[in-house]
Write a protein that binds this DNA or RNA. Structure first.
Lengths: 151, 151
DNA sequence: AACTATTGGTTGTAAATGTAACTAACAAGC
DNA sequence: GCTTGTTAGTTACATTTACAACCAATAGTT
């Protein structure tokens, strides 16, 4: 069957990386989607607020590398779910600092625990050395060409 | 600012993996999208047909781990673009074997070359040893829990 | 042969995403 | 103080995706 054997999809890094990423994402979805009806972007916003503390939508855009419209919609959804509140700054009324409610903190604590457990589960499939190399490579790849994506 | 330092997004493998994958995907999009107006799923279908030779939509679903509706629509789009043709089997008229047209083969050759070059570019960011570990880990992760996704 | 189940594939519709255009608040130049 | 530019964020609309229901062909059962 194989007519053009020059190249196997499995050897094309972007493809393989995507397969791996999708596999894990799909698996972890169960937690934030199944338990809390959250979308991936919502989970990311919650994740960042939980890890780094309160910040503005813009800061989330930059840190999480998400487009502002996605963040805007995720924030609205999380607000509707009583996971976070927004506090406008008098110093500059364009900004609004986002902060988790106590419910938000509980949800974050729960998902954070699940994330930790899942991470360990994945790492169990490799040696500590491998995990370190993997981490290093991914960081490097993620930094590849970050332009025009964080507006 | 950081209030909950227990966990950094950068250390959560699914998240990091996603960032890396998205970075590369977005970059490589330029080729199939910019040059040929193809969607990611279309490129994947083309990729598989080009690499492995003609096969049915179902086989593509299994190999590429894509849902049948995605493949169905991608095939329709590629057909409209004169990239592939379908040939029904008399032995079982539910099946249709998909094959690249000569245009499809030229497009595949071009994108395949671009993919190769891009892959090398990415690999240049790491040592051969690292690349090998990365490859191994990703294969392992991609195989994690393949159920209910290929229907 | 008739009845059900399964399989390969398509279509309809709702949800999600991307892109561009927009508003409001502030900043800078004159 | 008024015009111009920038920045934070939202909204509108078009494209894409997900999910379920569907159809047609075949296989399996009686």
């Amino acid at each position: 069957m194989r007519r053009h054997a020059e190249f196997d999809p499995q050897d094309f890094l972007p493809y393989l990386l995507n397969q791996a990423a999708e596999t894990l994402s799909l698996e972890f979805q169960r937690h934030y989607r199944g338990q809390y009806g959250m979308l991936r972007t919502e989970w990311r916003v919650l994740f960042h607020l939980g890890c780094y503390g309160e910040m503005t939508a813009k800061e989330i855009c930059v840190r999480a590398r998400l487009h502002k419209t996605k963040v805007s919609r995720a924030v609205a959804a999380l607000q509707a779910k009583r996971i976070l509140t927004r506090r406008e700054l008098e110093s500059d009324r364009r900004h609004a600092v986002l902060q988790l409610t106590s419910l938000g903190q509980r949800v974050f604590a729960d998902l954070s625990r699940a994330a930790h457990a899942f991470d360990s589960e994945v790492r169990a499939a490799m040696t500590p050395d491998e995990a370190e190399v993997l981490h290093r490579c991914l960081i490097r790849i993620a930094a590849f060409e970050t332009a025009q994506r964080t507006g």
